Amino acid sequence: MTHTADSHDTIRVEGARENNLRDVTVELPKRRLTVFTGVSGSGKSSLVFDTIAAESQRMINETYPAFVQGFMPSLGRPDVDRLEGLTTAIIVDQERMGANQRSTVGTATDANALLRRLFSQVGEPHVGSPNAFSFNVPSATGSGMLKVQKGQGKAQAEKAEFHILGGMCPRCEGIGHISDLDLDELYDASLSLSEGPFKIPGYTADGWNVKMIIDTGYFDPKKPIKDYTERELDDFLHRQNTKIKFNGINITYNGLIPSIQRTFLSKDREAMQPHIRAFVDRA
């Protein structure tokens, strides 16, 4: 029995020569799932993206007024003898959707939220909180004063505390993997802060980052790092969320390792500048 979808029109490609294609002719049924498979370089993307989708996009752009087209990229016609039956193409290419490692198909389509609800209702967590499936929800605590409306609209101040037990791993922050650092790739321990010991992009001897470390008052700027006491080395490497005053401004000081993890390792490697990516690969 013939499937109903087979009665629909087809997309016909004749003589496609984009990139490494050599006079390819093919008919594709509409409203059916068609899969192109082959080894790397066989022309899958050249046919799908650079020929069919490119011509569909070019035809759509031509429907806009000339004024609007002036702000759009100029698209040339693909190297093909004939294209028939094209309709609007929605392109989901192989590029990353954003620089954030948490950006996935699930987050972009809200499928993650639906799966989270499914797992929370069907799954049986055996450790952690009810948010155990919420890998991007960190644990949090806080306290403060609240104004509570009581009787005839009068506000009464009350102290309140809250605690949220999330499902995020505090070390990998929900990413699923961690990156350990090679300290020898971060600094030269034989040098002092004033001598510029760092091998980290942006950490020059006269730069803002190094001046801030010196102005904390925790370290002797002329003392080699290898001679730091255990307490000084811990403050230098691991201290977190400490309020200090730098150039008359209140800022938060974090040790070298949490700063590197937040500034470099938590970012998408492919979106980094080449010299930053080289440092991350070494560290």
Rank of each mutant, 00 (worst) to 15 (best):
M1D: 12
T2E: 14
T2P: 12
T2K: 12
D6V: 05
S7K: 10
R12H: 02
V13A: 02
E14S: 09
R17I: 04
N20G: 10
N20S: 05
E27W: 02
R31E: 12
R32P: 01
G38P: 05
L47H: 00
S56G: 13
M59I: 11
N61F: 15
Q69C: 07
P73Y: 10
G85I: 02
T88P: 02
T88H: 13
A89F: 13
A89P: 03
Q94Y: 10
R96D: 14
R96P: 08
G98V: 05
S103F: 06
G106E: 10
A108R: 09
A111L: 14
N112M: 13
L114T: 11
Q121F: 13
G123Y: 04
G128N: 04
F135Q: 06
F135K: 11
P138L: 01
P138Y: 01
T141G: 14
G142L: 03
G151M: 15
Q152M: 14
G153Q: 07
A155K: 15
L165I: 14
G174Q: 04
G174T: 02
G176S: 02
D182F: 00
A189C: 06
L193E: 04
E195Y: 03
G196C: 07
P197A: 05
Y203W: 15
A205S: 09
A205N: 06
D206M: 09
N209Y: 05
V210N: 01
G217Q: 12
D220R: 06
P221Q: 13
P224I: 11
D227F: 06
R231D: 06
E232V: 05
L237I: 03
R239P: 00
N241V: 04
K243A: 15
K245V: 15
G248T: 05
Y253H: 12
G255R: 01
G255N: 05
I257S: 02
R262P: 00
F264V: 00
S266A: 09
R269E: 08
R269T: 07
M272D: 04
P274F: 06
F279H: 09
D281G: 01
